[in-house]
Every structure is written in structure tokens, then in C-alpha cells.
Design a protein around this nucleic acid. Structure first.
Ligand SMILES: [Mn+2]
Ligand SMILES: [Mn+2]
Ligand SMILES: [Zn+2]
Ligand SMILES: [Zn+2]
Lengths: 149, 149
DNA sequence: ATACAATTTTGTAATGATTACAAATATATT
DNA sequence: AATATATTTGTAATCATTACAAAATTGTAT
């Protein structure tokens, strides 16, 4: 779902998900924020619009969306799951300094040597870590203390 | 760290780690069990030999070993970290049925397209999930209920 | 529209892995 | 032996996630 013109309600129905108010708002946020937000990021943001929102609903909804394969849960961060509305195969680079998570294109098919013959593959996760270009130059990057917790 | 004949004490010293009794026992267990054990696996096993062992010591030691790059922490499992004494680049396949984690060779260099030019890469994690060959045939695999929590 | 059933949301209470912390123990140095 | 340093241990937080049941919403049948 990259096309902004698509109707979110229809989109959910097409994937067998009843389009409740909360679900639409959460999906809307995800599509508008492809920076791999955490559950709390999503909760905090959507709660501003839906004041009665429960974090449990966010968890429920994300699980539902993930099962319907319209989003993907990422393990790029140590402690928490981050979510990605881009379900196409791509790699994730996590900067140790600024904690930013960058997408990167990757030719996953070249990976599939004969090593996994006989295995039925469902998901392919490519996670790199290191220092991003911005943090490489900017030695005095102070975001790390705040965010890396 | 594949050669069994190597002296564990010397090995730790070479990597700047003081070879305490607990550390040697934990390293010994890791080298002898390359099935990617959890912290609790390691604790339960080593505690049989070192009855006074504290789980905190296991955590401390694993962090120390990881920082010294003699082992690697894996995020193949959802909730818990698993540890691998094989620090060479290789992929991990997690079977959703039996929860087993399989190593697989992967040509990681072919991945590095120009997408990450300018990024300083420290770690490369390749995590696949799906069904392993054994579980594909054996439809009535009951391990899943026990182990998958 | 009303009554009933099914679904969704919500709040609160567990769970469980990891971390923080300080006292106790062991090891190194003088 | 005395003292300083490093390691281990036990217990108490932390914190993301899950479990659960009541409340609210929505769908369906009269
Ligand atoms: Mn992404
Ligand atoms: Mn491995
Ligand atoms: Zn950065
Ligand atoms: Zn299996």
C-alpha cells in the first residue's frame, strides 16, 4: 500500500479485516510513518486523535495486521518490536549511535544458495548494524544518550 | 573457536578476559553446544556443575564474551536472546514448528550492493523463518506445543 | 425499531527476560 | 598478612508483551 489514494477501509476489507475506527487510524499512521515505529510510538501518536485508545488495542491490531500480512514486525531493535508497512523484501540497517533504522535494497534471491534446499521459507530478515553516514561525520551526536536507553 | 584441543584458559586470556572458574565453564558449555542455547539453557546446564552459579553471572559473562567478540547474540527467537560461539558470518533459519534453529551458509558479500555505501557495518544478521524439512514430512509434530510457549 | 449474538475495545493484572544494584566472595598486589 | 581490585551472587526493579474479563460497539434476526 504505497498509493495514497487507496481507500483504507476497502483495503482492510480486501484483506479480511473489519474496518473499525481504531484499525483505520492505526493503519493510517503506519502508512504515513514508514520510519519503523515501535508499539509505543504508534500508541502515543494515534492516541492524540483517538483519546480513548488502549495500548492493548494497538497490540491486538498490530498482531492482526501482521497475520494478514499487510505489515511486518521487525527485530531490528534489541528490546522492542518495530513495525513496517512495507512488506516487500528489504534489509534494515540500525545505527548504533542515533538508533535510526534505514531501509536498504538487497538482492535476497542471490542468498538462496542450495543451503536451504528442502526448507520451506516464510520470512527473510536481513538486519545489519553499525554507524550511519550522518553519525560518522557528526562525532558529537548526542541523540544516542537519549534514545538508545 | 572450533578446535577442541585449544586451552580454554589461554583462549580467554588471549581475548583479554580473566579466566574465572565460572567463565571457563560457561565457555566450555557454549563450545560444546552449538545449538544456539538461551540464557536459561546455559544457566540450567552449567548450574549442574557449578551449583552456586547465579543467573546474573551468566548474563554478565555472556555480555562480556559478546563484547570481546568470542560469541554472538542471536535474535532468531522472538522473546529471548540465543548465543552462538560461531562468530563467522552465517544465516539462521528458525523452524516455526519445532523451534529448532539451523545454521546455513550464505554469501553475504553478494548482498553488499551499493545500497549501503557510506555506512560502517559492524554486524550482519540473516534470519529466515519457515518449516524445516523434518517438520514438513512429519505432520504430527508435537514439539511445537511444548517448546513454542 | 428491539432483542440477541458476535466482535471489538478497554483496563488491569500477570508474565518473563533482562538490568540495576550492593553485599559477599575471590583474586591480585603490596 | 593487609589492602585494593575484580568477580560473583541474590534480590529488587524495569519494561515490553500477553492474558483475561468486563464494557462497548456492531451485526443480525425478529
Ligand atoms: Mn523497512
Ligand atoms: Mn549459528
Ligand atoms: Zn546514526
Ligand atoms: Zn522443524
Amino acid at each position: 500500500m504505497t498509493d495514497k489514494s487507496i481507500n483504507l477501509t476497502e483495503y482492510l476489507i480486501e484483506h479480511g479485516i473489519r474496518p473499525s475506527f481504531q484499525r483505520i487510524k492505526i493503519l493510517q499512521y503506519l502508512i504515513g510513518n514508514k520510519d519503523h515505529p515501535t508499539v509505543d510510538d504508534i500508541y502515543q501518536a494515534v492516541a492524540k486523535e483517538v483519546s480513548t485508545l488502549s495500548k492493548t488495542t494497538v497490540y491486538n491490531t498490530l498482531t492482526l495486521f501482521t497475520q494478514a500480512s499487510i505489515i511486518k514486525g521487525l527485530r531490528a531493535s534489541e528490546n522492542e518490536i518495530r513495525y513496517d508497512p512495507d512488506t516487500a523484501d528489504h534489509g534494515h540497517f540500525k545505527c548504533k549511535k542515533c538508533s535510526g533504522i534505514y531501509d536498504f535494497a538487497v538482492n535476497i534471491d542471490t542468498l538462496q544458495s542450495d543451503a536451504l534446499a528442502g526448507f520451506q521459507i516464510h520470512e527473510k530478515g536481513i538486519y545489519f548494524t553499525g554507524i550511519c553516514p550522518a553519525c560518522m561525520e557528526n562525532k558529537t551526536n548526542s541523540k544516542s544518550e537519549e534514545e538508545t536507553k
